[in-house]
């Protein structure tokens, strides 16, 4: 079976500073993989590198097709839904408009309609807030909107950058529960970046651990979770 995403010897740079030093990993279709590591380890950079949002060297294949060097919007159009750090909400637009913008690339009306319904089912609160200006939503609601926007693309892979950031534990639980449902029902592969390793390992089936721009460890989520040495030295819990 062809891997959904293959990353080989990926290097990324912010100006003169190198943030990734040759990262290699792959994702199987339909699974949830998490990238763990301390602050500054290069987790967000990895997601941004996949979407060509930083200067990047290395090979990236999506569904067997090389996508490195493509413009961000073209990579997105291949079926990569990126839920960015900070959620990337269009704050001046209504919730409804945010969702419509998200489906901008799609021409299958019926499919878009179906995905709308699906989003409403996952996040009923958004349906109630359709006319509201997105900037006035609560943090949790904005995160739901961000995930919904990625879903409206009809993606085969979702890149999720710290969906738990700044949210109350109850809301985080709710969101993670729905992410699991999405993964199962919508058959969307997920690459999840999290500070909260315990939470991420609950959800994911495979984990990579990054340290200062390099992968130092990988394995099944359950193995990583049960390995106390790794938890202590890399994950801090």
């Amino acid at each position: 079976m062809v891997a959904l995403l293959e990353v080989e010897d990926l290097k990324a740079f912010y100006g003169q500073t190198q943030a990734l030093h040759g990262v290699t990993f792959s994702l199987q279709p339909g699974g949830i993989t998490t990238l763990l590591g301390a602050n500054g380890a290069g987790k967000t950079t990895t997601l941004r590198a996949i979407c060509n949002m930083v200067r990047t060297v290395g090979a990236i294949r999506f569904d067997g097709r090389p996508i490195e060097g493509l413009a961000t919007e073209e990579i997105v159009r291949c079926g990569v839904g990126h839920v960015p750090e900070g959620r990337g909400t269009f704050t001046n637009m209504s919730v409804d408009e945010n969702l419509r913008v998200a489906a901008y690339t799609r021409s299958d009306k019926a499919g878009v309609e179906r995905d709308r319904e699906m989003v409403y089912e996952y996040f009923p609160i958004l349906k109630a807030r359709l006319a509201q200006q997105a900037g006035t939503l609560s943090g949790g609601e904005q995160q739901m909107l961000a995930i919904s926007r990625a879903l409206m693309l009809g993606p085969r892979l979702m890149l999720l950058d710290e969906p738990s950031f700044g949210l109350a534990p109850l809301i985080v639980q709710e969101i993670f529960r729905i992410m699991r449902r999405i993964n199962g029902e919508a058959k969307v592969g997920m690459l999840l970046v999290e500070q909260n390793a315990a939470l991420a390992l609950e959800l994911a089936d495979h984990a990579y651990v990054l340290e200062t721009g390099r992968i130092v460890m990988s394995g099944k989520a359950s193995d990583v979770k049960s390995n106390e040495a790794i938890r202590k030295s890399y994950l801090g819990y």
Binding site: G81, P84, T105
Partner: peptide, 23 residues
């Protein structure tokens, strides 16, 4: 959709790209 996409691109170009909009 085009009008919306234009507004999105102006407001938040990075996010607009992530929605597949050719900013």
């Amino acid at each position: 959709p085009l009008g919306l996409a234009m507004r999105a691109a102006a407001q938040n170009p990075a996010s607009a790209r992530l929605a597949g909009i050719r900013v």
